[in-house]
Structures are given as C-alpha cells and as structure tokens.
C-alpha cells in the first residue's frame, strides 16, 4: 500500500461506488456486501413498488387500446372527473388561504400556546381516513347533532357533494401550513419589518416580500394537497353514499368498476390517476431542491 491509495479517496463520493477498482478503505463495506445491499434494495423495490406499478398499465391495456379508451366513454366516469375536480378545486384553495394565514400568525409573531397550535394543525394527519369521514357523519348525518335541523331546512351534506368537499378539506388540511411554517420561521421577519418601516402596507409586504421568499414551498404544499385530494378514498367513501353519477369521485368510481369485475375499465381509470401521481413525483422532486436552497439562504443570512 502506498501513500496515494490512502485517505485521499475517503472524502470523495467516488470511493463509495459499488464496484470500484480502487482499494477499500476502512470505512467502506467489502464489495460483496455492497452488491448484496444494492441487490436487496432493487429486489425489494421491484417486488413492492415497480411490479404493481407496471401491473396497473398492463391490466388497463389487457384488451387493447380500443377497450382502454372505451372505458372513458361513460357518463359516470365524466361525472366522477367533475366531482373530483370540484372537491380538489375547493379544498386546495381553502387550505392554501388557511395555510398562509396560519403561517403568518405563527412565524411572524410570538404568542403563548404556539406549539400547541402547530400540533393541532397537524392533527388531521393522525386521524385515519375512515374516522376523518365518520366525524362529519356524526355531525351532519341524519342521526348526527345537526342532522334534524339540516333536514328540516332541506340541506343535505352527508351522501352529497358538500360532505365530500368537507372530508377532502379535512384530509388535506395541514399540507400547505406545515410546508410554510418551518420555512417562514427560519426566514424571520426582518425583511417584512423593513418593508413596513418604508411605508408598505400589510398586503404589499406580503405579496412583494414574503410571497417571493416562500413561493416554492407554497407550490410544494399545493402539489401535495392536490395529489391527496384527487386520490382520497377512505374519508370520501364514508360520506359519499356511492350514488352513481352523483357522489362518486374518481377513486370511488374505480372501486365500483372493480367490484363489478369490470377490471379493464377500473385499471384504465386507475392508470389516469397513476399518471397524475407520476407527474406529482416529478414536480415534487424538482421543487425539493429549490426549497432546500431557500432554506440554506435563510440560514446563511442569519
């Protein structure tokens, strides 16, 4: 062993290659261990992730492209598309406004009970999907607290569109807030204070100073909420009542088709949601490094 093979390679990531011709240093695993670990990773992910992913498209195209496209020529499919877009279109902006308000109050001001408030905002993530739907049934259903009053005024929330929207709002509730709060806390409020002392009003300060600083994190939260809102199943299933052409969202439409053994159509609709999920992953990965950069800049300027 001469000096040139010694620690110079330690720091460089090249020395961590699976099959490197170079000598192994003391902080590396032997070649066979590396191959074993990489092999296990690829095998495990193939069995659990990649094969099921491929199966969605294979099943959708089992009877050819004509049968695939015929699956979308169905009024119930289009009403499910409309309802999913409607629920997403209401819940994502609603939670966006909430997320911005909450992060402004939490990150720019000091008050007692702040960590309790943050915990309460995260609460919907700890509630299982079915329970998330059930709480609205208990509140607005026929046997619920407000049920008799609502039915005497001819307002239907459960087994109708408003219930679906509410359940979707609940399951996507924390996404925007939990992206914005840590970033805005890290960024502090010096820039906003400068803007205000130079005569900007609250809205100008927010739109010209705060928003440009957090736009990527905000977009990230919106993308995650959109994906969840389009795909939510459990919570929406409890409040929907499965009325065909009326209260079925896309995932519920898939369930109906699947339970009718109409597998090609079920997987065809599933393939659309899968493509949406893949687009979500691409956007998410792209945004992650931008947010990382924002965080690093905020840490540097402190």
């Amino acid at each position: 062993m001469n000096a040139s093979t010694l620690p110079t390679t330690l720091e460089s990531p090249e020395s961590w290659q699976v099959a490197g011709p170079q000598l192994r240093t003391a902080t590396e695993e032997s070649t066979w261990v590396r191959w074993l670990l990489v092999g296990s990773t690829l095998t495990f992910l193939t069995l659990v992730l990649f094969v099921p992913l491929a199966a969605i498209f294979a099943e959708a195209l089992r009877k050819g492209w004509a049968a695939y496209f015929a699956s979308f020529n169905n009024p119930n499919f289009w009403s499910a598309v409309k309802l999913s877009f409607l629920a997403t279109g209401i819940s994502v902006p609603a939670n966006l406004i909430f997320g911005v308000a909450a992060s402004w109050a939490i990150a720019k001001f000091d008050f007692r009970g702040k960590s309790l408030l943050i915990t309460l905002i995260d609460l919907p993530f700890a509630v299982s999907p079915v329970v998330s739907g059930l709480i609205y049934v208990l509140l607005f259903g026929m046997t619920g607290w407000l049920g008799p009053w609502l039915s005497s005024h001819n307002i239907q929330i459960i087994f109708a569109v408003p219930g679906i929207v509410l359940a979707t709002i609940f399951v996507t509730f924390p996404f925007v807030a939990r992206e914005l709060i840590p970033l805005m806390q890290e960024q502090g409020s010096e820039e906003e204070q400068a803007a205000v002392s130079l005569g900007a009003n609250g809205w100008q300060t927010f739109f010209r100073v705060t928003l440009p600083n957090v736009k990527w994190a905000l977009l990230y939260g919106v993308i995650l909420s959109t994906a969840r809102a389009m795909g939510e199943f459990g919570a929406v299933s409890v409040v929907s009542g499965h009325i065909r052409g009326k209260t079925n969202t896309l995932p519920l439409h898939i369930e109906v088709l699947y339970n009718e053994y109409n597998f090609v159509a079920a997987f065809a609709v599933a393939s659309l949601l899968t493509l949406l999920a893949l687009v979500t992953l691409v956007l998410k990965t792209t945004l992650e490094w931008r947010i990382q950069r924002d965080l690093e800049e905020a840490a540097k300027s402190e």
Binding site: I56, L273, L278
Partner: peptide, 13 residues
C-alpha cells in the same frame, strides 16, 4: 410513489 398514488389504485394493483 406510495404517497402520491391514490390508495385505491395501490390496492387494486
């Protein structure tokens, strides 16, 4: 992927 994929889709796949 399991975060992004709707749970019903994962289930049938």
């Amino acid at each position: 992927l399991p975060f992004a994929l709707p749970t019903a889709v994962s289930g049938i796949a």
